[in-house]
Structures are given as structure tokens and as C-alpha cells.
Amino acid sequence: MQGSSRAAAAGSREAFTGVLAAGADRTRLAEELFAVVALLDSNVTLRRAVADPSHDGARKTDLAERLFAGRVGAEALVVLKGVVSQRWSSERDLSDTLERYAVESVIADAETQDSADRVEDELFRFERIVAADPDLRAALTDAQASTERRSALIGSLLEGKVTPQTLVLARQAVLSPRGRRFDSVVREYLEIAATRREQQTATVISAVPLGEQERSRLAAGLSAIYGGKVHVNTVVDPRVLGGIKVEIGDEVIDGTVIRKLDAARRAMGA
């Protein structure tokens, strides 16, 4: 985001946090904000009208009131008016911010049930499963397949096996990627979750699955190193042979056996 959009995002957040603090139905709020984003994406005239920087905030909030009152709940309308009242550098920045608030609403709902960690784990694992199965990936991302068919496929894979919040985000990522690849959408959702929860996320790659105690010790160690909470996602890759590889932010800590063997081969060939 450019400067004015960053300021707009900050300015609109008060409306969103106020709605959550007042006890809004987070599930409904997320559903309605996702629906508004879909409408804005599909209607260029409406999108330009609510994002036009030449119009003052009052004019745009009046437009939002006329168009959406009665179509969305009072809480979603408050958030929408808080967003459109700001001055945005681009139309996409406005709709991206609404999408972000929808995702945060889902995570906030999980927080009330103490299941936010589980949602992050499940969403991460689902993305890895899709990435590892070309046929599944093709079926989920096939633009020629009907929405109903792809939604049913997601349901068959996840319903009853993951939290309701994970199912919402997985379905949204598949059915409404907004021009992005599925893995990119999931990565953005996980980044939003991490930012909301004021934590960093580490991806740990190992040759064998890590037990809960190992994972907890690793998370505690990384938290001590980087400061603040660190959520650990794990990936099993037999090719590393042994040891672990940790990716956190832009940093990579590679303590795998395969890396050491590669270093030894390079040294012998030097």
C-alpha cells in the first residue's frame, strides 16, 4: 500500500475493532464482509464510487448507507462506512482491507473458542496437501468447474475434520481467490492471523514428524531468540535425512543432514 492507503487502513481500523469489542457476531460479520468484497470486485462502477479519492468521506458513507443498509447487518455496515470514509490510493487497497477484516473476524471467532492455533495449523496443512497433489489442486482451482462442485469437494475433504473457521477460510481461498494463486491466498490469510495475534510464524522442515513436546520446546526456543510468541508449522520431508530446517520471516536456519552433506561435498571438491 502507498502512504495514503496505509493511513486509510489505520484510520478505518477503529470502526472494525469497535465492532468486535461491542460483541458482534464474528461469523456473520466475516460472511457479510466477504460478500461485500465480492460485490465490489464484480461491480467496477460501485467500486469506483466508494473508493473515489475526489469524493469526501461523508458522500461515500452516505452512498454505502443507501446501498447496503438492510442488505448487511448493522456491524458490517459500521465497518464498511469506516473503510469507505477514508482516502485510498487505489480501489484494490480498499477491497483488500475489507477482506482483511473479514479474515480477522474469522480468527477472532476462533479466539473466542481458544482454537486459533488449531485454525492456523489446519489451514497450513490443507495448503500443503493441495500443493502435494496436482490432481486435487487442478480440481480446486479449475475456473471452468462450477462453484457448487468445488464447494462440495472442499466439504468432502474438510467437513467434520477441521474447525468451522478453517472450513470458512479454506472455502473462501478456493472459491474467491481474487486473482491470486491458492497458496498465495492461504499465505496471506496466515500472515493476517499472525499479525492479529502479535506473533511470528516459523515453518519447520524435518525428516520425521515432530512430537508435541518437541514442537513446544522449539516454539519456546524460537520465542526466546526472536522475542514474542512464535507459532510453529511443521512439514515432513524425508529428503532432509535428519535434523531440521527453520524458516522464519526472511531468515533460514538450516541444520539438516542433507545440507551438511552438501557442504562436505563442496569442501571435498574445492
Rank of each mutant, 00 (worst) to 15 (best):
G3R: 11
G3C: 14
S4K: 05
S5W: 01
A8N: 01
R13Y: 13
R13P: 09
E14P: 12
F16G: 08
A21R: 08
A24N: 10
R26P: 07
T27P: 00
E32V: 05
L33I: 02
A38T: 10
A38M: 06
L40F: 15
S42R: 10
V44N: 12
L46W: 04
R47M: 09
D52E: 15
D52P: 14
D52I: 11
S54N: 07
H55S: 12
G57R: 06
K60M: 01
E65G: 06
E65Y: 04
L67K: 14
F68K: 14
A69D: 03
V72I: 15
G73E: 15
V79D: 04
L80T: 07
G82E: 14
V83Q: 03
V84I: 06
V84E: 07
R92E: 01
R92A: 05
L94E: 00
L94A: 02
L94Q: 02
D96K: 00
T97K: 08
E99W: 09
Y101N: 13
V103S: 03
V103I: 12
V106E: 14
D109L: 12
D109H: 10
D114R: 02
D117Q: 00
V119P: 03
E120H: 12
E120S: 03
D121H: 05
D121T: 11
A132Y: 01
D133E: 04
P134I: 02
A138M: 14
A139N: 10
T141N: 08
D142G: 11
A145I: 13
S151W: 02
S151T: 04
A152Y: 07
L153Y: 03
S156A: 01
E159M: 08
V162G: 03
V162L: 06
T163E: 12
P164D: 02
P164E: 05
T166D: 04
L167A: 15
L167G: 14
V174T: 13
L175I: 05
R180L: 10
F182T: 05
S184P: 03
V185P: 00
V186P: 11
Y189M: 02
E191N: 06
I192Q: 13
A193P: 00
A202T: 07
T203N: 08
A207M: 08
A207V: 01
A207T: 13
V208F: 07
G211A: 08
G211R: 09
Q213F: 10
Q213T: 11
Q213D: 15
S216F: 02
L218D: 13
A219Q: 09
G221Q: 01
L222K: 08
S223V: 14
G227N: 00
G228W: 15
K229Y: 04
K229G: 06
V230G: 02
H231V: 12
H231L: 03
N233G: 09
V236G: 00
D237F: 05
G242P: 12
V246T: 11
V246A: 08
E251S: 15
I253G: 15
I253S: 11
D254M: 00
T256D: 06
T256M: 13
K260S: 10
K260C: 13
A264K: 09
R265D: 02
R265E: 07
R265N: 06
R266S: 04
R266W: 05
A267R: 10
A267Q: 11
